[in-house]
């Protein structure tokens, strides 16, 4: 999603950008790191898991879509508070959000992943892959859990995660952008901020490559989500039509 930088930014510029992105990330995270730590051992019981598993497919979709829609609002707010984003034209703001919000959520989701028992925070408690069985999307759910697992192995700091999310969000190659240059500049600045952050932490130089290597998996999950949604729409058109308008706006064609 990024092109190598042709222009350099001053240390001050990238520092300011890093501060803006990290501040925005902290302010707009649904759960703080402390809350996540506190919730870590709050697991669904076998009985509760079975209850989810026996839900009708439509009901489970509705519930997951409601969570996703709620989470999207936090991504919109994350973007809005990053300096420079609101200076883009509104058409381009919308294009970047539509194309990138699920990727941002997938990156930030690894905060809510517990590697000791391969569970993810869902509706206030940690859930296993099996809990989502009634969605009828085992491959999508597995891919999401596997991504969370491999992302959590990278042990990203909050700063790295915030900057990486912003790099992905500000992708200048999204189709239909009216003015790519300011998006490219914004991405370049965040990318350089991320590089500087990694250097400062003395991170292994491969860490950035490992982060970028997750992008194909993220993209494939985004595509799989659209495929599943299209299929669900064929099976249950009325339920799909009742999904929240924000969800339909973001994932409608």
């Amino acid at each position: 999603t990024h092109s190598p930088l042709s222009e350099g930014f001053s240390l001050l510029e990238t520092e300011r950008m890093a501060q803006s992105v990290v501040k925005s990330h902290v302010e707009t995270s649904q759960y703080s790191t402390e809350e996540l730590k506190r919730l870590a051992w709050n697991l669904y019981t076998a009985e509760e898991t079975r209850t989810y598993q026996s839900k009708p497919m439509e009901a489970m979709w509705q519930q997951c879509v409601a969570h996703l829609t709620n989470a999207i609002q936090y991504v919109v707010e994350f973007a809005k508070r990053i300096s420079g984003f609101m200076e883009l034209c509104q058409n381009d703001q919308i294009i970047l959000l539509k194309a990138g919000c699920l990727s941002v959520l997938l990156i930030q989701m690894c905060r809510a992943y517990n590697a000791t028992n391969h569970t993810l925070l869902f509706d206030g408690k940690f859930a296993s892959v099996q809990l989502f069985k009634s969605l009828g999307c085992d491959d999508l759910v597995n891919a999401v859990f596997e991504l969370a697992k491999s992302m959590s192995r990278l042990q990203l700091t909050e700063e790295e995660m915030a900057l990486f999310s912003a790099v992905v969000l500000f992708s200048p190659d999204r189709p239909w952008l009216t003015d790519r240059q300011p998006v490219q500049r914004l991405q370049g600045k965040v990318y350089q901020a991320l590089q500087r952050c990694l250097n400062r932490e003395g991170a292994n130089e491969h860490k950035l490559n490992k982060m970028l290597a997750k992008l194909p998996a993220i993209k494939s999950i985004c595509n799989l989500h659209i495929d599943k949604l299209e299929f669900f729409r064929l099976l249950h058109p009325e339920t799909a039509y009742s999904f929240p308008p924000l969800y339909r706006e973001v994932f409608g064609s």
Partner: peptide, 20 residues
């Protein structure tokens, strides 16, 4: 614009769900 009514509104709102 009609197509992205909610996104437009979220982008224009100074108070967002996060602040509430």
């Amino acid at each position: 614009k009609e197509k992205h009514k909610i996104l437009h509104r979220l982008l224009q709102n100074s108070t967002s769900p996060v602040d509430l």
